[in-house]
């Protein structure tokens, strides 16, 4: 089991990443808190030895996405999901940021992870495939389709 110091370091380092992934999937503060607890408890109890910070980060992303999916699938989940519940910071931020996030959240779920991992985290398609357990070609297809949808919603130039 990992120490308290390791847990603190992981929370400081990955809390924002987990929070963003939760927003993409859940958009609900209560569920986000559940995911936080699940993910970091798994981290503390995990015996996985990470070869690098990148390895650790990829593990954290994969566990968070899986935890979100599990929560959404759970038959015991009784909380309703507010479709438009954006974080307060975003709501009070610029209109542009709000529009962008709303555009991302309006994407079908299958596109959201690849968009986040590619545009925000900067992962290339093969690594996204490893994290999500998908073939690289599938990731390319999802990215291409997601870009088209986002361009339709936001306009502007496509960037790789």
């Amino acid at each position: 089991m990992r120490s308290e110091q390791e847990a603190c370091r992981a929370i400081e380092r990955y809390a924002d990443t987990v929070r963003r992934l939760c927003m993409i999937h859940l958009k609900n503060e209560a569920d986000t808190e559940d995911i936080f607890q699940t993910v970091f408890l798994k981290y503390v109890l995990s015996t996985t030895r990470f070869q690098s910070e990148e390895h650790e980060k990829a593990w954290m992303i994969r566990v968070t996405i899986n935890a979100c999916k599990d929560l959404l699938k759970s038959v015991f989940r009784s909380r309703t999901v507010s479709l438009e519940e954006l974080p307060e910071a975003v709501v009070s931020g610029s209109n542009e940021s709000r529009e962008v996030l709303e555009a991302v959240l309006s994407l079908p779920k299958k596109y959201r992870d690849v968009v986040y991992l590619h545009y925000y985290e900067g992962y290339p398609a093969p690594q996204i495939g490893e994290i999500l357990g998908k073939k690289t070609n599938t990731v390319y297809t999802l990215l291409t389709r997601a870009k088209q949808l986002l361009r339709e919603k936001l306009g502007g130039e496509e960037d790789a």
């Binding site: 809390a15 929070r19 936080f36 607890q37 910071a89 975003v90 925000y120 502007g156």
Partner: peptide, 20 residues
């Protein structure tokens, strides 16, 4: 645009403390 928007999404200090 996306980075700028998502940068604003952060875990609150309270949430970190509650998790710990």
């Amino acid at each position: 645009q996306l980075k700028e928007a998502l940068d604003q999404v952060q875990a609150s200090q309270e949430m970190k403390e509650r998790t710990l």
